[in-house]
């Protein structure tokens, strides 16, 4: 039972979280360096998507389905900021 939980929950979720954190650092590096504004906007969108993934992995890890609702909410809302950025980049208000 304990071994089953270790292989089915503990190891995969920790592995997934570790990879997500590495991806988060890489996305953050692109956010800081990104030569142009669209690069930064896409990096910001990626960060919010990675946060959704981290919440889902954390929900499995802690066996708390409540975190999944937060992930749904963030997934529904997060692209709103990207759309707003795209609107202003398209209008040419931000150099």
């Amino acid at each position: 039972m304990i071994l089953e939980r270790l292989t089915a929950v503990f190891v995969p979720t920790h592995l997934a979280l570790a990879m997500l954190i590495i991806a988060l650092f890489l996305a953050f590096a692109r956010l800081l360096r990104g030569p142009t504004l669209p690069d930064r906007v896409v990096a910001l969108d990626l960060v919010s998507t990675l946060a959704v993934g981290m919440m889902a992995a954390y929900a499995v890890m802690t066996n708390q389905p409540v975190f999944l609702d937060v992930a749904i909410l963030l997934a529904l809302i997060a692209f709103l900021g990207t759309v707003a950025f795209a609107l202003y980049v398209g209008k040419g208000r931000i150099p």
């Binding site: 937060v70 909410l73 709103l80 759309v83």
Partner: peptide, 23 residues
């Protein structure tokens, strides 16, 4: 009884209308 409530619900509804205003 669970996470949620009037405040968060209101924010989500306002975000929905903001999305409509953007689109």
């Amino acid at each position: 009884n669970s996470p949620g409530g009037g405040f968060v619900g209101g924010l989500v509804a306002a975000a929905a209308f903001a999305l409509y205003a953007l689109a």
